[in-house]
Amino acid sequence: MIGARSEAYPLRRREVVAALLADRDDLLVVAGLGAPAWDVTAAGDHDLNFPMWGAMGGSVMVGLGLALAQPDRRVLVVTGDGDMLMGLGSLATAAAQAPGNLAVAVLDNEHYGETGMQQTHTAAGVDLAGMAKAAGFPVIGEARAQADLEAAIRDLREAPGPVFYSIKVRAEELPLALPPRDGVELKERFREALLR
């Protein structure tokens, strides 16, 4: 029982993420805690994924650090509206640095999925893409329907950034797809795949 307009949103998060990560080549992926980490894992566990089990509010900053350290590699942060709302300042910090290789995709279902589907502020109308634009992200957008998705994915994967998209996805509870939960293992396998 969710009882909100986002139950009727047409885009489904697992399909969105699968399309976003299709033919990912050497894409570096940071996934925010909760459902985005499960979505990214459902699309295929990968050494160049850094899915987080905590550190709420930190996913854009992890992506920023990675993007600054690896300026020749595309870095995609996939996170949720709850994580993004907790780290709104990081939009300003990332925009001020303005790495062209950083892209942020927020899967916005307007709910905290891991804690019982309570509504987030985006359910009340808070506009994350508008906030990213105001922070100075040069490429921003909002995707609400399949017709919006092709341009969103193209920008997120290829456009000179930093890029920010809010992707409005259906509020739904899905089977878990869990990545390794040992943070040391996640860190070491990422570095081994990237640096060695």
């Binding site: 930190g58 992890v62 300042g89 860190k187 640096l195």
Partner: peptide
């Protein structure tokens, strides 16, 4: 030694974690 100004200090913990993933010390 590029400077990365933050809006709040905890951003730096996450930033430097990402930098380390990318092979850089901060």
């Amino acid at each position: 030694m590029p400077l990365v100004p933050l809006t709040t200090e905890e951003e730096g913990i996450a930033l430097l974690a990402g930098a380390w993933l990318g092979g850089r010390r901060g």
